[in-house]
Nucleic acid binder design. Structure first.
Length: 295
DNA sequence: CTCCAGGGATGAT
DNA sequence: ATCATCCATGGA
């Protein structure tokens, strides 16, 4: 096990892992335990430094993209998007009171780069669920179908491949508390495993086409598609609209107007928030959720 | 168009 | 302790 320290300015580990974009990191003491792809990692923040613990020479791990990269630090920095120019991104936002407050509150929160299948599968499970439930489902799927790994004395599990989940059945998935989402996850897993849905190839598509492809998958609607675009395809314009952000938008940008349609909201978000709208969305979302008001 | 499905955490009483 | 509410896709 090797311990590494890297500079991480303008970064907030706790906000980044707890803002509702990713659901499997487990906090023990001051540290977060989880996996980046198949790599088990322990992360801890010490002011402007990030302490990374991971298996020294990837002992016991099968070959992975990280091993070929040969650099765990690079993998972590990439996953956590430590290269995103947050100051520039914030400067690209329109100025208004809601967004100014949200960006101040969310200093250092980064939109991370998640593995595509893991992100897609998790967000299919997220529909009609709250964060606590999604965490339970993610953990249940990992424990049942994923590979167990050790990081110090903690057990972590990587996310099962589409092939593995495709070989399961609806009953097994329902036992992981998926409810009616089991059927959708299974069908999508099989399409991905069969190569019918080429998640990696789709990264070349422009936003609109990517959204269309994603929405053709069972269990994927506009909200889930936008989450996957933002969190797994680095489409920083994508603006997922859920109940939280809908409340914020109506309150802040359509004050005491009734009957605001979904179309009006979508049109406004695409126009108003700009090239980094997804970041603006995440900041508004996290700020509203942590300071639960307006209900 | 409306209604409903799974289900555990959360908050109100 | 009990009870209502949260939640966003797809099919009837």
């Amino acid at each position: 096990m090797k311990l590494r320290r890297v500079a991480a300015p303008d970064f907030d580990l706790e906000k980044t892992l707890n803002c509702g974009q990713v659901f499997h990191w487990q906090k023990i003491g001051d540290a977060y335990y989880g996996t980046i792809g198949s790599l088990p990692v322990r992360l801890e923040q010490d002011d402007n430094q990030l302490i990374i613990s991971a298996p020294g020479e990837l002992d016991g791990l099968k070959p992975s993209s990280f091993e070929r990269q040969g650099d765990i630090i690079a993998a972590v920095r990439h996953y956590l998007a430590l290269d995103h120019p947050l100051a520039d991104i914030c400067r690209s936002f329109p100025r208004d009171v809601a967004l100014d407050a949200a960006k101040k509150f969310c200093q250092g929160l980064r939109i991370i780069r998640q593995p595509r299948w893991e992100c897609l599968a998790t967000f299919i499970c997220s529909s009609m669920k709250q964060v606590a439930h999604i965490r339970q489902i993610s953990l249940a799927l990992r424990k049942r179908f994923g590979t167990e790994r050790m990081i110090y004395v903690s057990h972590v599990y990587d996310f099962p491949s589409a092939e593995r989940l495709g070989r399961s059945n609806e009953g097994e998935l329902r036992e992981c508390a998926l409810g009616y989402r089991a059927k959708n996850l299974l069908a999508t897993a099989r399409r991905v495993a069969a190569g019918d849905a080429d998640l990696d190839g789709w990264s070349q598509l422009p936003d609109e086409e990517l959204r269309e492809r994603l929405c053709e998958l069972p269990g994927v609607g506009a909200k889930v598609a936008n989450c996957v675009m933002l969190f797994a395809y680095e489409r920083l314009r994508a603006f997922p609209i859920d109940v939280w952000i809908e409340r914020v938008l109506k309150q802040q940008y359509f004050p005491r107007k009734r009957n605001v349609t979904a179309y009006q909201l979508r049109e406004f978000c695409g126009r108003y928030f700009g090239e980094n709208g997804g970041y603006a969305q995440q900041y508004l979302f996290h700020h509203a959720r942590v300071n639960r008001r307006g209900r």
